[in-house]
Lab assay of single mutants.
Amino acid sequence: EQIEAIAKFDYMGRSPRELSFKKGASLLLYHRASEDWWEGRHNGVDGLIPHQYIVVQD
Rank of each mutant, 00 (worst) to 15 (best):
I6H: 03
W37G: 02
A5W: 02
E4W: 14
A25Y: 04
Y11D: 01
S15Q: 11
V45I: 09
H42T: 06
V56R: 09
K23E: 14
E4K: 09
I6S: 10
I54M: 08
H31Q: 14
E4H: 15
I49P: 01
H31F: 11
N43D: 15
H51R: 10
Q2T: 04
E39Q: 13
S34M: 06
S20V: 05
S20F: 03
A5H: 02
D36L: 12
R17M: 11
Q52M: 10
G47F: 01
G40P: 00
A33R: 14
H31K: 06
R17A: 12
H51S: 08
K23S: 13
A7H: 00
K22D: 14
G24C: 04
P50T: 01
H51Y: 05
H42G: 12
E18Q: 12
A25W: 04
V56K: 12
E39P: 00
D36G: 11
S34F: 05
S34I: 02
I49C: 11
E39Y: 03
H31S: 10
L48R: 13
K23F: 05
L19A: 04
I54L: 12
H51F: 07
A33F: 13
V45S: 15
R14W: 04
A25E: 13
A5Q: 01
Q57D: 08
W37C: 13
D58I: 03
D10A: 12
E1Y: 12
E39H: 13
V55F: 13
G13T: 04
A25C: 07
R41K: 06
R41F: 05
I6Y: 10
E4A: 08
D10K: 08
F9P: 01
A5L: 02
E4M: 12
E39M: 09
R14D: 06
W37H: 09
R17P: 14
F9I: 14
K23V: 06
E35K: 07
G13F: 02
G24E: 08
R17G: 14
N43R: 11
I3K: 15
R41Q: 09
F21M: 05
I49W: 00
H51Q: 14
A33H: 08
Q57Y: 03
E18H: 08
A33G: 10
S34T: 05
K8V: 12
D10N: 14
H31N: 13
V56A: 10
